[in-house]
């Protein structure tokens, strides 16, 4: 039997985008769509949040998809099956507030694409008509397409360079659907902050319910540090315990952008240091 936190699979799905399967029965049995985990690769590492993309109660496994962009995720990408994460906590955050809405549009951008899979699956299971819009810079960065198709009634693809599907952003696809008279009862968005903001703006006044899954910087993940705070509807909320999904129309998007910029410089130093020392 594998040990708790043991990596069972770690494979590159597209340029710098990986899927990791980890043994953690206690998280697998409690996981719900929309929740996330926090992990550390080593004792000197950072505490990093990752969305739960899938889980298997019987096998006791959880699945994450990540982009190797910084010190932690690059180290993750070098882990081999049999190695163990140093720390793993979860599931964290509130599950997606799914129910039978009717017609739902779900938008995933870039590394946010895999994260919409469990939400779409849950909405589909509840009987919704699910329209998924997934987009990336270029066609090779579109991941989880097959699995998203399995749980969607329609899938629309966009690429910035036009190498597949609609040339443009996910919001262009959404606007097109709305302009052609399609009606939706709810919308979900997971992806870069700018994308979620643009989706929220396009949906405002046309789709009554809209959620975005925020990617705030986090330290504790359990509501004790305030690093992930964000103003929602005029009140300070903590993304890790009150979120990560919030009503898109109430989020202070400007504040999210400001707070995500806090550690730009240090993130570069960290990656450089790791590369030069070759420490993993």
């Amino acid at each position: 039997m594998p040990a708790e936190r043991e990596v069972l699979l770690n494979e590159e799905l597209a340029q710098d985008i990986y899927k990791m399967v980890v043994y953690s029965p206690r998280i697998a049995r409690a996981a719900r769509a929309g929740q996330f985990i926090l992990l550390m690769v080593e004792d000197r590492g950072e505490r990093v949040p990752m969305t739960l993309v899938d889980w298997d109660k019987e096998r006791g496994t959880i699945e994450m998809a990540y982009q190797a962009v910084g010190a932690t995720t690059v180290k993750m990408s070098m882990m081999k099956p049999g190695e163990r994460l140093y720390y793993l906590a979860g599931p964290l955050g509130q599950p997606s507030r799914v129910k039978l809405f009717g017609r739902v549009v779900i938008v995933g951008g870039g590394v946010g694409i895999p994260a919409i899979y469990p939400i779409a699956r849950e909405l589909k299971r509840l009987g919704n008509y699910v329209v998924s819009i997934i987009g990336a810079r270029t066609s090779t960065l579109i991941t989880y397409e097959d699995r998203i198709r399995e749980v969607s009634d329609e899938v629309h693809i966009t690429t910035d360079d036009g190498s597949r599907g609609l040339k443009g952003y996910t919001v262009d696809a959404l606007k097109r659907l709305l302009d052609s008279g399609e009606r939706f009862d709810a919308a979900w968005a997971v992806g870069p902050a700018l994308m979620m903001k643009s989706i929220s703006e396009a949906a405002a006044g046309r789709i009554p319910v809209s959620y975005s899954s925020l990617n705030s910087l986090m330290v504790c993940g359990v509501g004790m540090c305030g690093a992930c705070r964000i103003t929602v509807g005029g009140q300070i909320k903590l993304t890790c315990v009150d979120g990560p999904e919030f009503d898109s129309y109430s989020i202070s998007w400007n504040e999210l952008a400001i707070r995500l910029r806090t550690y730009r410089k240090e993130e570069m130093i960290s990656l450089e240091t790791m590369r030069s020392v070759g420490r993993v």
Binding site: R44, G45, E46, R47, A71, T72, V219, C220, M224, C225, G226, A227, T262, Y263, K265, E266, E267, I269, S270, T273, M274
Partner: peptide, 25 residues
């Protein structure tokens, strides 16, 4: 918040960044 600052410094050892990965600015 003091908790974020102290957690970064005490628990995550940000005072030894970049030897430790967690930064404090």
């Amino acid at each position: 918040t003091a908790n974020e600052f102290l957690t970064r410094v005490n628990l995550m050892k940000a005072y030894m960044f970049p030897e430790y990965d967690t930064p404090i600015h």
